[in-house]
Design a protein around this nucleic acid. Structure first.
Length: 491
RNA sequence: GCCGCUGUAGCUCAGUUGGUUAGAGCACUAGAUUGUGGAUCUAGGGGUCCCCCGUUCGAGCCGGGGCAGCGGUACCA
């Protein structure tokens, strides 16, 4: 291949490779989450990455932009297929397709990669992993409460402490009631509803005044970009602001009373009653407001939620690139989606669920030192000094392995010096050396690379460096395993 | 989509008012060592200066257009 045509070696934009430390850490984390979900009686299910496009939602690709948001493509039969963008829509399809076999309420969990065809940002990728748990077939607030309690338990199983996380709960129904109190009919004016919900969603980032601007005329951000507002009148804006400010941190019942005061409509009681039921179930089960908190500012992604919505927020503080103190923020969310299954069957099947953003949660655990990283020690490397004697080296690694020691024989073709470099780069704690001399004496040399690196710090001259064989010693071959174990235990 | 910043070696970057053969550090390879990584020294390999057009005797540098990357913002089922 000529130089001109060499492809550039790079991962596709928004995609990334994951190395051994993170893989091991994430595996350990996933196992703990799974342990909690299993203990609650949830059942695993695994689904394909690809679904028929129409099964995923209203995203039939249009001719101009067939890939807006989702990755879509056509197969040999001209069927439109898409990569799943979350785990909820495929679950709804699964339940609709298997409704005869599945017991209801059906409680399931699954973990997997999802794909979004949108611009990646810092910490945001086009492929990422979610870990979901859902209860399908129960309209009871008990199902919502259970999901919230399970999420709270999961955070603690992962090592987070009380006060480092909180499960926030709100309801789409109370939000719509607040909109009605502000003079917006959610059904009659869905577009304005979306604008208002989007504005409410930005409370965290912009503060109450920023949200007020977005509810009114609009807002210009630092980059000079102008976001058009919802054009509400001042009274309506204050109604929404009062709704957002209704949270009482110490007392969910007080929050709900405040909301009732803002909404002041008899018809709003559905949402409030559900919130009250969730709050009561949580507190009766021993989950205080420090774990499950009614918070009217939770909005969540907009489309399919129909009732309760949840967000799991981490409260630990961290520094961003500019040194400002920020809270870690959301690591998961969910809510009630009573209409998703009905898209397939025509029959309403109430459902609720919660989704964890795996990578984000993992970063958070790393931040507070609760991630299990590098728990696996690199292997002991047996050098190949004499290619004719490979059988000897092979038996040595087998002996080490059968004694529970991670070990490998060098399988390249390079000389000893390069093999040492390999072992070093590999992070090997020890190398085993047996050349002709040692073999004649029935011995092996064991070299401790980490100790050697430490000792070499003080060496300044070439003579001193070359004259020493730092941190290595000989033992009879029969004692190799015992000596290796001892050396590994020391470091 | 919109706004801003940046494109020079594998990586991080320097490069004067436009002037010969484009540099450094790190990384890599080899030697100093019969069989030794990590300290030190020496040598070496590695370049479409993002692309195209223009200005000029002459462009990494100036002008125009494009592309890519990063950051912010919007959207995010």
């Amino acid at each position: 291949m000529t130089k001109d045509h060499r492809p550039k070696a790079r991962a596709a934009k928004g995609f990334r490779d994951i190395g051994p430390d993170e893989i091991r850490g994430i595996r350990a984390m996933l196992a703990k989450i799974q342990g909690v979900y299993e203990s609650y009686g949830f059942e695993p299910v695994e689904q394909p990455f690809v679904e028929y496009t129409d099964a995923l939602g209203k995203f039939l690709p249009d001719q101009d932009r067939p890939n807006a948001g989702v990755f879509s493509f056509q197969d040999d039969d001209d069927q439109w297929l898409s990569l799943r963008y979350d785990l909820t829509a495929p679950l709804a399809r699964y339940v609709a397709e298997n409704s005869q076999k599945i017991p209801t309420p059906y409680r399931s969990y699954r973990q997997g990669w999802v794909f979004r065809n949108e611009k990646p940002g810092p910490g945001r990728f086009r492929q990422f992993m979610q870990f979901d748990a859902d209860t399908v077939g129960s309209a009871s607030p008990a199902a919502d409460a259970e999901v919230c309690m399970m999420a709270a338990d999961t955070m603690e199983a992962l090592g987070l402490e009380r006060g480092q996380y909180v499960m926030k709960v709100n309801s789409r129904k109370t939000m719509d009631a607040a909109l009605l109190a502000a003079g917006i009919d959610a059904h009659a004016d869905p577009e304005r509803r979306l604008i208002v919900l989007r504005a409410m969603d930005k409370l965290d980032r912009l503060g109450l005044d920023g949200v007020r601007a977005l509810l009114g005329k609009g807002r210009k951000d630092e980059s000079g970009d102008f976001t058009k507002g919802a054009e509400l009148d001042p009274k309506a804006i204050e109604t929404i602001a009062a709704f957002l400010s209704a949270r009482s941190d110490g007392d969910n019942a007080q929050t709900i009373a405040n909301l009732e005061n803002v909404i002041r409509l008899d018809t709003a009681n559905d949402g409030l009653a559900e919130l009250r039921a969730i709050a009561d179930l949580a507190s009766q089960s021993g989950y205080g407001q420090d774990r499950i908190l009614i918070d009217p500012s939770v909005v969540r992604g907009l489309e399919y939620y129909t009732g309760a919505v949840f967000e799991c927020e981490l409260l630990m503080e961290t520094k961003d690139e500019e040194g400002r103190t920020v809270r870690f923020g959301s690591v998961g969310g969910g809510g009630r989606y009573d209409d998703l299954v009905a898209r397939f069957t025509g029959q309403q099947v109430p459902a609720t669920g919660f989704s964890i953003g795996v990578s984000r949660l993992y970063s958070a655990l790393k931040l507070v030192g609760k991630a299990e990283e590098s728990a696996t020690l690199a292997p002991v490397v047996v050098l190949v000094m004499d290619k004719a004697a490979q059988g000897d080296y092979w038996r040595m690694v087998q002996e080490l392995r059968s004694n529970g020691i991670r070990a490998e024989m060098y399988v390249g073709t390079a000389g000893m010096k390069a093999q040492m470099k390999y072992a070093d780069k590999r992070g090997a704690p020890l190398v085993i050396i047996q050349g002709g001399d040692e073999k004649a004496k029935g011995e092996v040399q064991i070299k401790d690379l980490r100790l050697g690196a430490e000792l070499s710090q003080g060496i300044a001259s070439r003579e001193e460096y070359a004259s020493q064989r730092l941190a290595q010693f000989s033992v009879p071959q029969a004692e190799m395993v015992a000596a290796v174990k001892k050396a590994l235990a020391q470091s």
